[in-house]
Design a protein around this nucleic acid. Structure first.
Length: 854
DNA sequence: AGCACGCCGACT
DNA sequence: GTCGGCGTGCTC
């Protein structure tokens, strides 16, 4: 008998290794690397993934249990994806079970279900029967019963069931079940034409409908849904059933794909003629695809420069070779517009995956990919795991977007996974952005450019410092730089005005709209044009304070000010979801002078209506787009010009393209600048540049007005001339001085605990252990030239949000040069820490290459 | 992560 | 004297 090595679905570091199981004869032949199996594990039955097969000789067979089951006819993961999962676990220091789970559609996240049956032949003593007769009766009616169902029926009998199990009067069985519903449709299958004609001849003259039905099938022999056939023929399903009973046709339940885009027509679109600039950018990418080279490209194109058409044509090249393509877009720009462009070009060959699909819909799209019915996958972050087997191209649009980094474990970055996966397949990678992340950009500039002379466009300003990324760093991405510096049709970038709100105040304007913005809005209303307004804060007011005693409303579970929401009249914590009623007097001193400060999107909406009576505003933020399809609904309304203003948080900044938008207003450009995060300036610059790109994308010229209290901050000032290069140069200078990415790398380790003192002690002992190890390894100590240390351990310090969901948080940061093996080193240290943490009840969370410092 | 086994307080 | 609290330890 052979042996399967299984990663069980327990997301803990202690069980993060393969466990060996015997493959029983009945399952022989069904088990492969990547199979999903059910295994007995410590007294229960769990889902697991087979990561290896061994011959019996190599393992000690005596103590092995057998696999309980193989859960799918076709393994959901390929050996290649299992390998990718192992790579991810090393790269982001997370248990393999978690990496593997991330690659499966949610529908295949197996759940252990317990079933209860009456023990066969067991005699119930009279007194037991008296007390627990109702349980016995329930099980006599239906058996086996789900434990969960039984508990629902008898909520207070949990202990009783346990007792009866122990006494051997009840028995328990466990099964791993999918969270899955495959929709089936009753489908009619026609027999061979000859049989069909015989059937028609045999039908009595008065059964006209039956005859018609068979005649229809003779003309249309392909399988058809019973319902549909009945409609076509103009009869009821009874006719069809009658025919089935006679054996004249076959009726079967057939699994149906839930097509989330069913009933929508996507007019076929032909490739557009590329502009000379597009063609120049396209050439090296197409070349790499044609030659099946694993090259990575940074396609740096300003907003409106036509990157998408380049993606589409590169994908076509890839399909022509009978290879497959993955396109990642940020969740937020996975709008109908984007999907439509891909569906129009590639039709049925496109599978779409995003979070708004139900588990079932997503599973169906996933199966279309796996079964080879789709060759292009477009989706958010997790689409990088699309189960293709011959990938030729991976595109990551808006490469700089933070949503590519998953904030929960596995804390992977889809961009890095993409490059690794492409390497496995010999596929090309295109990273597209108008505002590339500094990491990608610096690496590309360091490597050089594909097109001669292109480097001039951006490179000079980036400075020599960008080469600081260590050349020996083996997992560093080194993209070929492909600039696309002009907008299609030579449309100019919109003019940008920066308004200093301090000056407005001096002029006596205390409103949230500056004179310039108010005038510009009014002009759009008069001309019937549209505007987009950005304010990156939802809710009505951002904090609540008592003017008598200084009390501020804080979340009782987090160290965070509560935000006032107008619609629901409550105060809410945006981190844990806590809500309380709006106070009318100060909860602390009962003074009526409790006031709401700070501006959120709700308040702007109100101010718009007051300032411009009759204005039609669509507000888009987390609060108005939580419903399925609402995002799409608002955008459609806006496109159809049923509103004058689209007001929202950063979700209005990305990827939208409306011809009548001629004004973009940013209400508080500096709102994110004060955050304690070294990427805050980069993010602000990116957000402002992106939102500015929403204006004037078609015939009408665009205008951008940015309100700020910090007009001279580079993140704001340099947006004025869309000066990515100048901003980048400055910012890279700062990063270099501080040893931040891309000049150094970070691993953040956050410890959390319900009690602060225990946490502080633990944090300190952990940090000093790390430091000891580092110095023992000769990694610390500044060198004689004042160059940064190879590795530094910073902290522990309280996290920027010191308490979240009733847990205190402390963090350590490991800052290191790219040529140091900090991952292996940290993994070891964590192993030790994990043991200590378990005793004290602390939680550890590791973030390799953190994107958010909060 | 759970579920077992194992040692100390409030009940029959 | 028993039921049950949840503290450590293991799971092929």
């Amino acid at each position: 008998m052979s042996v399967a090595r299984v990663i069980v679905d327990v997301p803990s570091r202690e069980t993060d290794r393969p466990f060996d199981y015997l493959i029983p004869p009945r399952l022989e032949g069904w088990v492969e690397v990547g199979s999903r199996v059910a295994v007995p594990f410590g007294g229960r039955t769990l889902q697991g993934i087979v990561v290896g097969l061994a011959e019996d000789a190599s393992v000690d067979l005596k103590r092995l249990k057998e696999l309980a089951d193989v859960l799918d006819a076709v393994p959901p993961l390929s050996a290649e994806l299992v390998e990718l999962g192992e790579w991810m676990s090393r790269r982001w220091l997370c248990p393999l079970a978690i990496s593997l789970q991330a690659m499966l559609p949610a529908a295949l996240k197996g759940k252990t279900e317990k079933y209860i049956t009456l023990a066969r032949g067991a005699q119930w003593p009279a007194d037991t029967l008296e007390t627990y007769g109702d349980l016995k009766q329930a099980l006599e009616r239906h058996s086996p019963l789900k434990m969960s169902g039984l508990l629902q029926q008898f909520p207070d009998r949990a202990d009783a069931i346990k007792k009866l199990l122990k006494a051997g009067l009840l028995e328990e069985a466990q099964k791993v079940e999918d969270r899955l519903s495959v929709r089936t449709v009753l489908t009619v299958f026609a027999p061979e034409p000859d049989a069909l004609r015989e059937g028609i001849a045999a039908i009595p003259a008065r059964a006209a409908k039956q005859r018609e039905t068979l005649e229809y099938l003779l003309a249309h022999p392909e399988p058809i849904a019973q319902q549909r056939l009945a409609e076509e023929v103009g009869t009821g399903t009874a006719t069809i059933r009658a025919l089935a009973d006679k054996g004249l046709l076959e009726l079967r339940q057939v699994e149906e794909d839930r097509d989330p885009y069913a009933g929508r027509n996507f007019p076929q679109s032909a490739p557009m003629r590329l502009t000379p600039a597009q063609a120049e950018a396209f050439a090296p990418i197409a070349g790499a695809v044609a030659e099946r080279r694993h090259d990575v490209f940074l396609l740096h194109g300003v907003t409106g420069s036509g990157k998408t058409e380049i993606y589409l044509q590169a994908i076509q090249k890839c399909l022509d070779q009978d290879r497959e393509a993955i396109v990642l877009v940020p969740e937020i720009s996975l709008t109908p517009q984007m999907v439509e462009r891909f569906k129009s070009r590639f039709g049925e060959r496109v599978a779409v995956m995003h979070s708004r699909l139900s588990n079932g819909e997503r599973y169906d799209e996933w199966r279309r990919i796996r079964d080879g019915r789709a060759q292009v996958a477009i989706g958010a972050r997790s689409a990088i795991f699309a189960p293709f087997s011959r990938i030729g191209l991976i595109v990551i649009d808006e490469e700089h977007e933070t949503s590519y980094k998953q904030e929960e474990s596995p804390k992977y970055h889809a961009r890095d996974v993409a490059v690794e996966r492409a390497r496995q397949h010999g596929a090309a990678v295109v990273l597209g952005s108008a505002t590339p992340s500094l990491e990608t950009y610096a690496a590309a500039i360091a490597r050089g450019t594909a097109a001669a002379g292109a480097r001039r466009a951006y490179a000079a300003s980036a400075g020599e410092g960008t080469t600081a990324l260590s050349a020996s760093e083996d997992d560093a991405i080194r993209p070929v730089y492909v600039p696309l510096p002009e907008r299609v049709g030579d449309r100019p970038l919109p003019g940008v005005t920066i308004v200093d709100m301090r000056e407005e105040l001096k002029l006596g304007n205390r409103a949230m709209f500056s004179g310039a913005l108010a005038d510009a809005l009014r002009a759009r209303l008069e001309r019937g044009e549209q505007s987009v307004l950005l304010l990156n804060r939802r809710g009505y007011s951002t904090f609540v304070m008592c003017r008598s005693c200084g009390y501020t409303a804080q979340c009782p579970h987090c160290d965070i000010a509560l935000t006032y929401h107008r619609g629901s009249q409550n105060l809410r914590c945006h981190y844990c979801g806590y809500a309380e009623r709006e106070p009318s007097v100060c909860p602390s001193c009962q003074s009526p002078h409790i006031r709401f400060f700070g501006t959120g999107t709700q308040k702007v909406e109100e101010a718009l209506s007051q300032t411009f009576p009759g204005i039609r505003v669509i507000r888009m933020d987390v609060d108005t787009t939580s419903e399925k399809g609402s995002h799409e609904k608002w955008l459609t309304q806006f496109r159809e010009r049923r509103a004058d203003v689209l007001l929202g948080t950063q979700m209005v900044a990305k990827g939208l393209d409306f011809p009548y938008v001629t004004l973009v207003g940013v209400l508080a450009a500096d709102s994110a600048l004060k955050l304690p995060d070294f990427r805050a300036p980069e993010r602000t610059f990116q957000l402002l540049t992106q939102v500015a790109g929403r204006a004037g994308r078609h015939e009408l010229p665009g205008e951008v007005i940015i309100q700020t209290y910090e007009p001279e901050h580079p993140s704001v000032a340099l947006v004025r001339h869309h000066d990515y290069a100048a901003f980048t140069e400055q910012e890279l200078g700062h990063r270099r001085k501080l040893g931040y990415p891309p000049f150094g790398r970070l691993i953040s380790i956050t410890l959390s605990h319900e009690q602060a003192p225990a946490l502080i002690a633990m944090g300190q002992s952990f940090a000093s252990k790390l430091r000891e190890r580092a110095s023992a390894a000769g990694l610390t100590g500044s060198n004689a030239y004042g160059a940064p240390n190879a590795l530094e351990v910073l902290g522990p310090v309280a996290s920027p949000i010191p308490r979240l969901k009733d847990r205190y948080r402390f963090q350590c940061m490991i800052k290191y040069r790219g040529d140091v093996d900090a991952l292996g080193w940290t993994a070891q240290a964590l192993q030790e820490l994990a043991e200590a943490a378990k005793r004290t009840g602390a939680q550890i969370s590791v973030d390799v290459d953190p994107q958010m410092m909060l």
